[in-house]
Amino acid sequence: MLKFIVKRCALAVPTLLILVTITFFLIQMAPGSPFTSERQLSPQVLANIKAMYHMDKPLWQQYLYYLGNLAHGDLGPSFKYADHTVNQLLASSFPVSLRIGALAFIAALVLGVAIGTLAACKQNSLLDYCVMAVAMTGIVLPSFVLAPLLVLVFSVNLHWLPAGGWNHGHWANVVLPVTAMTIMYMASIARIQRGSMIEVLNSHYIRTARAKGLPWRIIIMRHALRPSLLPVVSYLGPAFVGVITGSVVVETVFGLPGTGQHFVHGALNRDYSLVLGLTLVIGALTILFTAVVDILYGLIDPKVRCQ
């Protein structure tokens, strides 16, 4: 196990370096620059601003300068938000996305697995159809419809919960965004879990267990649930990264200060350093959670452990 972790860490560094290099040069190719504005800057002012951000130097020197700073953990100043560094922006936004995302993820996982299992056990029954219909609605309903709908019902009409804002993470402000994200992910998890559980329930060892006269509850909980989770686990790695790095739609609708908004604004504003910082963080998280999924695989499935 230790060897596996060390190997993954060793691979992560060159992977991230390649990622940063590609992103660094690719974003420079986008038309416009961080300083393109409706009031075109005079050449003199532009030269002063570029000098301040070291952009007056050749691209390769800028790249080495960025890597040098990166080695010290400095992601540079934001080009758009002059009063903040990228480190500050990420440090303030990531905990928000992490909290919303982690809560939504846990809720989606528990509910998704439960619904999927229930539907699989009652395959082709009215309950199966009803449960899966609800799940499918969650998949087909885009977040830019679902989130405003929740606001309209629970905030504007019923006045039960706030329509937006973070309010230092007050529970009332968290409920609606978490619900919106839960529904989005729960539906996918339920669908995967249902398919996988049906497959497991049709396997020989389950038939043997039933022939032995084991109660249905024991069969599901002890023998079927664990192997049926394998496809869900492989989905969870990338899904978890996606969920904790924020959803731009959910954050925009609920006015949350998470990283999701930085994605879009960073790209639109050509905020080079912010885009690079975000790419790096997401790249690192993706590598981390892919490794976690591989480890979980081993824990869940003895076959994988043997390999």
Partner: peptide, 8 residues
């Protein structure tokens, strides 16, 4: 989003 928060 702004309109919804105004209405709320």
């Amino acid at each position: 989003a702004e309109l919804n928060r105004y209405k709320a």
